[in-house]
């Protein structure tokens, strides 16, 4: 059953009984880890966005590179 089906079922109607047990699920730790990675990605994305916005303001200076006049 896809997510869309799951969210458009009419739960008050009798549903066909599941054959045997539910489909096997991924271990909870897997799902938890994925959520955590999502949160960390969000954290990094927001730091990055904040830094980029800040870097567009006129006084921003790129980090000086030791040993060379210009980077890149």
């Amino acid at each position: 059953m896809t997510l869309l089906d799951a969210l458009t079922a009419k739960p008050w109607l009798p549903q066909p009984p599941h054959p045997g047990r539910d489909a096997p699920r991924a271990p909870a730790a897997n799902v938890g880890l994925r959520m955590l990675l999502g949160v960390i990605a969000m954290l990094f994305a927001l730091f990055a966005v904040a830094l980029l916005v800040r870097a567009r303001l006129p006084d921003w200076q790129a980090l000086p590179c030791p040993g060379r006049r210009r980077c890149g």
Binding site: R25, A26, A28, G32, M35, V39
Partner: peptide, 17 residues
């Protein structure tokens, strides 16, 4: 939050769609 979300996704009993 990780707990609540994962529990809802993974620990529903049989038949709890």
């Amino acid at each position: 939050g990780l707990n609540y979300v994962t529990t809802v996704l993974q620990a529903r009993t049989h038949g709890m769609t």
